[in-house]
Amino acid sequence: MSRESDVEAQQSHGSSACSQPHGSVTQSQGSSSQSQGISSSSTSTMPNSSQSSHSSSGTLSSLETVSTQELYSIPEDQEPEDQEPEEPTPAPWARLWALQDGFANLECVNDNYWFGRDKSCEYCFDEPLLKRTDKYRTYSKKHFRIFREVGPKNSYIAYIEDHSGNGTFVNTELVGKGKRRPLNNNSEIALSLSRNKVFVFFDLTVDDQSVYPKALRDEYIMSKTLGSGACGEVKLAFERKTCKKVAIKIISKRKFAIGSAREADPALNVETEIEILKKLNHPCIIKIKNFFDAEDYYIVLELMEGGELFDKVVGNKRLKEATCKLYFYQMLLAVQYLHENGIIHRDLKPENVLLSSQEEDCLIKITDFGHSKILGETSLMRTLCGTPTYLAPEVLVSVGTAGYNRAVDCWSLGVILFICLSGYPPFSEHRTQVSLKDQITSGKYNFIPEVWAEVSEKALDLVKKLLVVDPKARFTTEEALRHPWLQDEDMKRKFQDLLSEENESTALPQVL
């Protein structure tokens, strides 16, 4: 008996699950189920560990084997000379395990699969056993689809999209007709009724959600790893209520002995410091949205989908001078704002400069500016000194954290500008005749005249004003913003236009 009217009423009120309206889709043409990776026989039982391990490696599972009696060998002398080797079968990115008779397991190899009674669906509900069930008529011709799209860092995100009359449910929550939600590992998919569980979705590319604290899981769906560094790992996640993407940084307390840091400095109150950081608001710094204190720290951040500045300059790639100017102007505005709010970044580098898009002209935002507030000064500097390429001379020669101030950030900005303009770092371990530390503390950077011949004198002058060993003589952010190279009204107008595109209400910060 159909429950279409009941569920449609529920759909009209929406769902609290991570779902959002989605535009129309072009329906895929039908194809045989076997060619799409559906096993030839149905099963109602969950797999054992041996079955799972075989399939996850990209080899055929026991459900897909063919009797050897149906095959015969071709003698080598009868092999056609022009026969080309077969292409290897792509490894599946996800697996659906059937929970009921009449449904088959599915190895997801393609990027898009339609499910329903219509014969054009890649996964067609046409098993005779299924057709005899009382629920068969409640399934729509095109009930739902599972697909994946390219996300940040060229990774993939799996989604389920509801197109049914009676509802598609993920972990008992209604997706909603015309809406989608991301699928995470071990999600249970039910059709027409929330208790009519048909599939379990296994994402073969992500970790299980159960490793994360419950308070975090209640608000966010964790997904793929976006990156990792000395101070922690960053994962893509989704807000459950809105389906908006965020980035979540995970900082290990054990790695940084944060408990010991608190004992050594009783004034170090991470929760208080995070609340201060959350109040920071500038178009060129990453917004801190939320914070969870569990076995590790979880910092929920605004997501930038254009990648890191590092990706644009790695491998001796240089940027156009006009692009360097647009990016560097924004970096200076961001660091100036942090300094005005009493925050020294201490870890400025291309990896911590994020881009809003893949376009050459785009907004940038500074991230990882609050680590000293979370990890403690000593722990952070011990970590950073392991990779000193961007560290100021006074940091390398000081004991502990004494003896330096916000000028350290201006040195790091000078190193970043040098790399963007030239395509190579000013200080490098590859210069074996002088140690990296000695290069930095003496201010002897690697200047290649033929490379810098293409760079304007004004740009080079600003680099020199920032890479000054004496912090008292080094340019401040205010002085850098007043430098002739940055007195470019076309560049500032472009920045204002980019801000307006992102948010019509965002105004250009005042600069002296």
Rank of each mutant, 00 (worst) to 15 (best):
A257H: 01
E149Y: 00
A94R: 00
P128T: 12
W93L: 01
E173R: 03
C231S: 10
M222Y: 13
W114P: 00
E81S: 08
Y156A: 06
E8V: 09
K135C: 08
L60C: 13
K142F: 08
S32M: 04
Y136K: 03
S50Q: 04
P128L: 09
P90G: 05
V175K: 00
K141Y: 05
A94I: 07
L191P: 03
K179M: 01
S19D: 10
T205I: 10
D6K: 08
S49K: 09
P80C: 06
R117D: 01
K249Q: 02
H163T: 02
E79P: 11
H163V: 06
E86D: 05
P213W: 06
R254K: 13
G116A: 02
K142N: 05
I221T: 11
L129I: 11
E107V: 15
N184S: 05
E8C: 04
R217A: 00
E263P: 15
Q209R: 10
G227W: 15
Q69R: 01
S192P: 15
V270N: 15
G14F: 11
E79H: 13
D203T: 02
V7P: 11
N186Q: 03
V234Y: 00
L236I: 15
K214R: 11
E173M: 08
K131N: 10
W114N: 11
S15V: 05
K241W: 06
E263G: 10
I248V: 07
Q100V: 14
V246C: 03
N184W: 05
Y139E: 00
N185A: 11
T138P: 02
R3L: 13
A9I: 06
S252A: 06
S16G: 11
E173N: 07
G165A: 01
K214T: 04
K235R: 10
L191V: 13
K135R: 08
S28I: 15
N48C: 11
I251E: 05
Q20P: 09
D162C: 12
N110I: 15
S32I: 05
W97H: 05
F256C: 03
E84G: 12
K214N: 07
R240D: 09
R262L: 04
E87M: 09
Q100K: 10
G259T: 03
S15P: 07
K253V: 02
T45N: 11
A237L: 04
P88E: 04
E79L: 09
R181P: 02
A158K: 14
S44H: 13
G167R: 04
K141M: 04
Q78F: 13
K245G: 05
N110P: 02
F199L: 03
S49P: 09
Q34G: 05
K177L: 10
S49F: 11
K245H: 03
Q100Y: 15
S57I: 04
Y136F: 15
S32Y: 07
Y136Q: 03
F201C: 04
